[in-house]
Amino acid sequence: MAIVFQKPKALTDAVLHYCPGCTHGIVHRLVAEAIDELGIEGRTIGIAPVGCSVMAYDYFRCDMIEASHGRAPAVATGVKRSMPDNIVFTYQGDGDLASIGLCETVSTACRGENITIIFINNAIYGMTGGQMAPTSLIGQVTQTSPYGRDPKTQGMPIRICELLASLDAPAYLERVAVNSVAHVRQAKKAILKAFRNQVEGKGFSLVEVVSTCPTNWGLTPDKACQFVEEKMIPFYPLGCYKDRTAEEAK
């Protein structure tokens, strides 16, 4: 019997703990597919963050390190500088990467560390039960913005790709989504490219994945995907924000 669908080899058999409809599963799969396709599992070291994906170390078959909140890029730097020929990636949420770890994010990008960052932006703190994130939308109701995010007192959402695009060092910055088949396909391409860049020594690559949190958004999985399309993407436009590899290819 012909196999038409298979779990990527770089994923373990552990049962994912993510909520129904959460897009972490899709992104995990895309990362694992990239690792499989590039044949790099044996030399890849992943860094899990603090947040919903804290236990990613159980799901990827490569060596994994669990970092403290926000520090994954610093930990990745330590690993990469120790073993430059290995492939190092971090997998971080919006609170981890864009709030408590913003300094590490910007500084690591600024150094142009040859690592890959997968950034999950679902505009909320999921693991702690749905508090306001740095990327929460204006007016978004969360546990800590019960009257909706008010820019006057709670500031404006942060756009990471645009912010990092102002730096000279990063090689590749792209924002994708996984709320539709077409978007998933695009996301796969971007994630693969972000890993390939590292294999080829091209430097810092970050893929921001606009994701869902049906549980804390209080939406069904399909409505959550619709929310991404109608609310998230208009504020966080998809696309490539920097690609020095393309410029260099010219």
Binding site: A67, S68, A74, V75, G78, R81, S107
Partner: peptide, 25 residues
Amino acid sequence: TFLQAESEIAAINMVYGCASTGRRA
């Protein structure tokens, strides 16, 4: 490797990453 980190916090976490790979950091 000598790396001047962006902060003390980053520096100790770089040590954490490096030590994870078994090096004397």
